[in-house]
């Protein structure tokens, strides 16, 4: 019994499977970031006015409203280049973590939550947004883990 528990796991994915996991994660992040960046850019005024209501952003709303979609597009472009996709995945993980921490802070601290953000994903409630983001954080972690030698 003890021997069985201490035995190192024989379950190792081959290179092809690990590459496939990373590919799927990369393409899903590209779809997410390009889709949401475009929807924010096409409704930039509405997006900026929503951000203006956030106590953490306030008067920086225009800067943040332009920065978020541009950063999303930049990360997508980095993810497209195979040589840099690990870096891109780390950046995507960081961005999703920042979004999730921000959403959690807003839910826990704010009594007046801005009503919506933009895009089809905006149909989700803030709580659903957090679960959605956690899913993508796990996806990024899985992708990065699959690349470990």
């Amino acid at each position: 019994m003890e021997n069985t528990l201490n035995k190192p796991s024989n379950f190792r994915l081959n290179t092809k499977s690990r590459e496939m996991i990373m590919d799927i994660a990369v393409y899903l992040f590209i779809i997410l970031f390009m889709y949401t960046a475009a929807s924010k850019l096409f409704t930039i005024k509405s997006f900026a006015s929503t951000l203006a209501k956030s106590p953490l952003i306030g008067s920086l709303n225009m800067f943040v409203a332009w920065s978020i979609p541009l950063v999303e597009i930049a990360i997508s472009l980095v993810l497209i280049i195979p040589k840099y996709r690990k870096t891109g995945m780390r950046a995507a993980l960081l961005l999703m973590t920042i979004f999730t921490v921000y959403l959690s802070y807003m839910i826990l601290s704010s009594s007046k939550l801005p009503c919506h953000c933009g895009g089809v994903i905006s149909k989700m409630s803030w709580q659903q947004h957090i679960w959605f983001n956690i899913g993508f954080i796990l996806l990024a972690l899985t992708g990065l883990q699959s690349q470990k030698k």
């Binding site: 590209i30 096409f42 497209i80």
Partner: peptide
């Protein structure tokens, strides 16, 4: 091939978003 497919996916996602917004 991966890079080309990535560009294709990015373009489609951006285009789909623009299409649904407009």
């Amino acid at each position: 091939k991966k890079a080309v497919f990535g560009v294709l996916v990015a373009g489609l996602a951006f285009g789909f978003s623009a299409f649904t917004t407009v």
